[in-house]
Design a protein around this nucleic acid. Sequence first.
DNA 1: CTATCGTACAACCAAATGGTTGTAGATCAG
DNA 2: CTGATCTACAACCATTTGGTTGTACGATAG
Lengths: 110, 110
Amino acid sequence: MVVDQLREVELDRLFQAFADSTRRDIVRRVTVGESSVSGLAALYAMSFAAVQKHVAVLERASLVTKEKRGREQIVRGNHEGLQKARRLLDEYEAIWRQRVDRIADILAEG
Amino acid sequence: MVVDQLREVELDRLFQAFADSTRRDIVRRVTVGESSVSGLAALYAMSFAAVQKHVAVLERASLVTKEKRGREQIVRGNHEGLQKARRLLDEYEAIWRQRVDRIADILAEG
DNA sequence: CTATCGTACAACCAAATGGTTGTAGATCAG
DNA sequence: CTGATCTACAACCATTTGGTTGTACGATAG
């Protein structure tokens, strides 16, 4: 399925975005309350440009949105991306539970 | 906290492991039913060594276990790693919900 | 015993990642 | 207007990643 290829790329980006502790921290912070890019940059021991790149990665993964306000760029958490990741892991868990149930069935038969 | 640094590295590995569609597929398959490394390798349009590396990444992330059986190496899904990832995303969702609730409270007051 | 199978691992390569510095354009404060 | 602030983006660099091929070795089948 062609559609699923898109979905796979989307998931690649999603999990890739989560695979860095600075980015996870940014998601946490902007979910609690919005912040400018420079506001975020002040929190980490790295350059502004580095933080800017992290925000860009999160934006591409739909985990965060950016909105211009004056000369600042306001970053906010985006629930949708989060839900997508959770839903996938839920699927995996469901598969796992099915397997456990099947084994339980086999044991019950024996 | 020093302990949390370990946890962060662990999470890096976990999400990094999920950030590849081949690896997600492997997790799905070996969760449904165990498989040898060569059995898995036969499924994908890449070399045995490449699949071997993917399995190693999953093993390091505790998403999969390997066990020698004769000359084969049997790969199985590991529920623990999956749960860890889900729990983290649950945390994020909880933070989000708190925020939404807070906004709802503010609106209720107004 | 010998050939084959399944695995491990090293060496190599191209591309992506995570960081840097530097330059330049808006926007705001005084 | 001038200077400071916030952002964007390019160029560069080291390391990691995802793939390859080739070699070696234990376990199994005939």
